[in-house]
């Protein structure tokens, strides 16, 4: 140790130790309600779920530690596990891109200077706040084979009608179409993003002779990629956890065509009282969602522009 550094060390020792400032305390006090809620109602259940995934547990009695048996059962013996994984991936592959495309398109339309924009924005957002059960009942009537409005439209176009909810090949597309019902939230976020794009960029492009599609793909889409990225992550997480529509409208049928992963998890947790096994399913879902989120996040370097 040099004399200089020794001197500095003494000086530091002579100074009063930094203490928690009143300002810091104030911050902690303000976030305490959230923090307490997070610890009690989020972190604790998450940790509990991890632990119980290694147990045979009915959620009310004593948990019996059984090691990896729940995971082994899911991956090798549960005939509905892979069925539900398959159906969920199908749902995600259909609903997420379609949802982003539809929300973005709507946002572009509603960003135009036309009369009554506020009214249309409200109308398109409204379904997002309609209770799920009510929405599902409406959609059941829309999908009805004999009197449904979708089949009525197909007939007008001279196309054959579809058994949306009774044909195993069409039940999942029906669920995917129905997922468009709740694109209002994503649309609002896109709209906010669109309004943040500087107008002078479009003016400069116009001066350079850019036409509409060129402005869209040269300015709008690149500058909207952070918003697309955000909506993609949110859409993926929501799609992995999709449950309500399938639970109420099809109960997983027909012939397991809409047996989403969360529905399978729900059955094990609340119908069979197999909370340990359901916890293992939840942990696997968490790992997959987390992994895919990381992958998408890493890929964002290549396609998301922040400036």
């Amino acid at each position: 140790m040099t004399a200089q550094s020794a001197g500095m060390g003494r000086a530091a020792a002579a100074r009063p130790q930094p203490r928690v400032r009143a300002k810091d305390l104030l911050g902690f006090v303000f976030i305490a309600p959230w923090l307490i809620s997070f610890l009690a109602f989020d972190l604790m259940p998450i940790l509990s779920g991890f632990y119980h995934s290694f147990t045979n547990w009915n959620a009310l009695g004593i948990a019996e530690f059984i090691g990896w048996a729940n995971y082994e059962e899911a991956l090798t013996r549960d005939p509905l596990f892979w069925v539900s994984v398959n159906r969920t991936l199908y749902f995600i592959a259909g609903s997420v891109p379609l949802g982003i495309f539809a929300a973005f398109t709507l946002a572009l339309l509603l960003n135009a200077n036309i009369r009554g924009t506020g009214f249309y924005r409200t109308v398109y957002y409204l379904p997002s706040v309609v209770p799920t059960v009510a929405a599902v009942i409406v959609w059941i009537f829309i999908f009805e084979t004999r009197r449904g409005i979708l089949n009525f439209g197909l007939e007008l176009l001279g196309l054959p009608t579809i058994r949306w909810l009774s044909d195993p090949n069409w039940a999942m597309p029906a669920l995917i179409i129905m997922s468009l019902w709740t694109i209002g939230a994503a649309m609002i976020i896109f709209l906010a993003g669109l309004q943040g794009i500087p107008q002078e960029l479009y003016e400069a492009a116009e001066v350079d002779g850019a036409n509409g599609p060129q402005r869209l793909f040269g300015i709008t889409v690149p500058l909207m990629t952070p918003t697309i990225f955000f909506n993609l992550i949110m859409g993926l997480v929501a799609a992995f956890q999709a449950f309500n529509n399938a639970f109420i409208m099809t109960a997983g049928g027909p012939r397991n065509a809409t047996l989403l992963y969360m529905l399978h998890l729900y059955n094990n947790a609340f119908r069979y009282f197999r909370m340990g096994y359901a916890s293992a399913l939840a942990v696997m879902l968490f790992i997959v969602v987390f992994g895919i989120t990381i992958l998408v996040y890493r890929s964002s370097d290549r396609w998301v522009y922040y400036s």
């Binding site: 059941i140 999908f143 009805e144 909810l165 027909p254």
Partner: peptide
Amino acid sequence: GVQNVLDFYVT
């Protein structure tokens, strides 16, 4: 067929 039956009781 079963699809006819499911459609009939869709509600």
